[in-house]
Every structure is written in structure tokens, then in C-alpha cells.
Design a protein around this nucleic acid. Structure first.
Lengths: 228, 228
DNA sequence: GGGCGCAAAGTTGTATACAATACTGTCCCG
DNA sequence: CGGGACAGTATTGTATACAACTTTGCGCCC
């Protein structure tokens, strides 16, 4: 209903649209994604919606429960740790490669990204800021020219957004843009080793800002029941 | 037709069955996977088949071409390099963790795996040997108790099987089991550093045994035309 | 005889109808 | 008054019908 139904939405377009909404915390963890609702919203049949939800479930952004429907995923503390563990294996080395391949155009793009993120934060658009923050990391992987790793990181970043929604402790907004700024400096100097180290510490800081005590499943079934 | 249709196949069961067939090189790269054919083979409607094919396409094992159908993926040399690049970022450290957590039961399982692989090679069942070889790597990730990384590695291993089908240069069968045996020794000693180094070199050896010159796309559209 | 165009067949894309399962509220019984 | 069973409602699972597109083969024209 709030979606533009001028053109017909493709499966991938719907999946991307939903992923963005999840990433921006417009669809919080546990939200029920009813097939009829989505079909009506996008002006298409359930067939396409189901395919899109299946795609998102493969990215661990949506949990499918047989005969019960699709819900925005709710990563456990364990899953949260694992996601950042995987990122810490992939992203520092990727940042290293990216630093060595960095061009002026790439630097400008990353710089614009940081600026936009800051603007979003000032405007109170936290969801949009989080999305831009993720895009910064994704852009680094793209610059490293590693399509396969980029795809993996893309999924991990989106999952990280869900993790932040559930386990974020204190608002360390400044920390974020600061870390990205420091990375940008290393990139500008084409200092691979520094970029690698900065990325590694950045990810460690991110995990440190989470509260992953095992009392996690409160939003699990309780919230889900209320959500609908 | 050759499939058992006693019980009804689920989407995931079909996807797993197809993935196994691809992994074992029973379905070589470029093979057309017609929806009607599969639906008849498994005794279900195209609905489920389409969902399974969509799932496999998300694992990069199947390439979907709009209005043309599904084909077993044909990784490019570049993609091949990237897959092993990703594996070399993930698996050595994972082997390290696995070594530290190794139990007697785990060792027995890995040992049995190597034995089975050897038996398969002796029997000339190369596809089965390749599957078992992949399972060895997957088992290591499981032992490391990293579900998320395990899922990523699982996909990369299956893709590696496609890469081997396309770019394998010489049969270095012995090398394979030798490397796994050396890893097993390190695991038995709970020597994480050694396991990490062995895994790293094992993956380098694998890439070295490939012929990734950019004359790759011969099997691309030519073979696809003949295949059907 | 070669090349273009059109028509027919086959395959995939999408929507919809129906079946199966889970949820909700009510009624009856203890 | 509380608990359990049952029926109604709603939602998801699967199959099928139809539409759109691609491919293929034939025929006509140049």
C-alpha cells in the first residue's frame, strides 16, 4: 500500500527492498512478514513474495518457519559472535588489498559515504546512518576487487545490522565515523598494513560495544507474539 | 524416473540431492536442469523444483538465466581464484581452532573419512572421493564449532568441486590424501599452528594444481549447446 | 541457393485455486 | 471458575492453469 506499484516488482527487487528496510531497522527483528501483506503491498502475487523471502532466508535475514510464516531473523548471541568472527577473518585482509588498489575516485566515494553518514546522524536518521556505515565496509570489499568475498561480507554486514538492533549497548556513534575516517587516511596513504590493523580493531570495537550475555532470547518468542 | 518417489521430496531434500550430484560430478558444469524433467524425476510439481533451483543459485552452484532455465554453474577462472582466496582466509584459522578443540571422536571421524576417500579412489569412484575430500574440510569447520563460517565454507567447497571439474590439470590424487593425513597428525597433537600452516599450504597446492589461464570459456556456451 | 521472417513447439514466469496446517475464540464439562 | 476440546478463521504449502518468452523449423522472397 505504501509501495509504488507503477512498475511490477521483480523477485530480486523485492528482496533488495526488504533487505534495505531490515538493514535500516524499519523492520525490527521478529517482525512477521506475511505473504498476503507483502503481495498486496508490492502489487503482485504471493509467488514472487515467496521467492523473495526464500532468498532472504538464505542470507539469514529472514527465518522461515514451516506453516508459520516468515519473520525477520533474530540472531542469537552465539550467532552474533560468529558473524563478527567471520568478518574479522575476511575484512582486515580485504582492507589491506583495497588500500593497495585505491584510486582517487574510490577515495572520493568513501569520503562522500562518511559525509553522508555524518549528515544522517545529525538529522537523527539512525537507520540510514547504519545503512551507510555498512555500505562503507561493502565498498571496501568492492575496491579490493574480490567479488566472492564481497558477496559474503555483504551478507555478514546485513546480519550485523540485526545484531546491532538486538544487542547494541550504548550509542557510540562518534566512534563509528572516527574509525572510518582513520581507515580512509590509511587508504589515502595506500598503507595496507595500517588499514588491515585499523579494520581489525574497528571490528573488535564493534563487538565490544555489544551486550552478548546469554540472556538473549527475551525478544525471541515473547516479542514475536506481541509483534503481530 | 531414477529417483525414489516413495516419499515426497521437500525443497531442501531436492536441493541437497542435486548439490551432491553436482559435487560428485554426476552433473557436470553447464548441464541444463529443466524444471519439467526434475519435477518428473522427483515426482513433484515444478513449484518445489523452482524453489530448490533458486536455493542452489544462491549458493552459486546453479546459474539461472531468465526465460532460459537453470544450468549447473561454470565458474570463470577469476571466480575460481576468488573462491580459493576466500577459503585461504577462512580455513587455516578455522583449522587452528579445530585443532585446539579436537576430541578422540572427532579424530576417529576424520580418520574414517580419509580411509573412505582412499577406498573410493581405489575403486575408481572419483566423484565420491571428491565428495569425501570436501566433507573432510567441512568436518574441520564443524569441529571448530563455527556454524556461520561452516556455512560459508560449505558453499565454497561445493563451488570448488565445480572449479576442479573445469580446471583440474593433472590427477594428484595422492597429494590429496597425503595433505589430509598430515593435517590429521597435527590435529592429533592439538598443534594449532601446524594445522593452520598445513591447511594454508594445502589450499595453495590445490590452486597450483589448476589451470586457470584465461582461455576458460570454451565449455561456456559451446558445451551448453551440445549438452542438451 | 542463401537469408529473412513467421509460425509452431517447448520452456519458463506468474497468478490463482485448492489443500493442509496452525491459530483463535467459544462452548461444554468437570 | 478453570481447563480442554472443538470449530471457525486465517495463513502457508502445493499443484495447476495460463501467459510470456525463447527457440526451432519451415517456407517464402530476393
Amino acid at each position: 500500500m505504501n509501495k509504488i506499484d507503477d512498475t511490477s516488482w521483480s523477485r530480486d527487487a523485492i528482496a533488495a527492498d526488504l533487505e534495505r528496510a531490515i538493514h535500516e531497522h524499519r523492520l525490527p527483528p521478529g517482525t512477521k512478514l506475511g505473504e498476503d501483506d507483502l503481495a498486496e503491498a508490492y502489487g503482485i502475487s504471493r509467488t514472487i513474495v515467496r521467492a523473495a523471502l526464500l532468498a532472504l532466508s538464505h542470507r539469514h535475514l529472514v527465518q522461515l518457519r514451516r506453516n508459520r510464516g516468515a519473520f525477520v531473523a533474530q540472531p542469537t548471541p552465539r550467532e552474533a559472535r560468529e558473524v563478527f568472527e567471520a568478518r574479522s577473518l575476511l575484512e582486515p585482509r580485504t582492507a589491506h588489498s583495497a588500500a593497495l588498489r585505491m584510486t582517487e575516485a574510490d577515495l572520493a566515494l568513501l569520503n562522500a559515504n562518511i559525509r553522508d553518514e555524518h549528515a544522517a546522524l545529525d538529522a537523527g536518521e539512525n537507520g540510514r546512518a547504519l545503512l551507510l556505515s555498512g555500505q562503507f565496509h561493502l565498498e571496501v570489499a568492492r575496491i579490493a576487487d574480490q567479488t566472492t568475498i564481497e558477496a559474503v561480507i555483504s551478507e555478514l554486514i546485513s546480519r550485523s545490522s540485526l545484531i546491532i538492533a538486538l544487542y547494541w549497548r550504548r550509542r557510540a556513534a562518534l566512534c563509528e565515523t572516527q574509525a572510518h575516517h582513520a581507515l580512509l587516511d590509511a587508504f589515502a596513504r595506500k598503507d595496507g598494513a595500517a588499514a588491515e590493523e585499523l579494520m581489525k580493531n574497528h571490528l573488535l570495537d564493534l563487538v565490544a560495544s555489544l551486550d552478548l550475555r546469554n540472556v538473549a532470547p527475551p525478544p525471541a518468542s515473547l516479542r514475536e507474539a506481541l509483534q503481530r
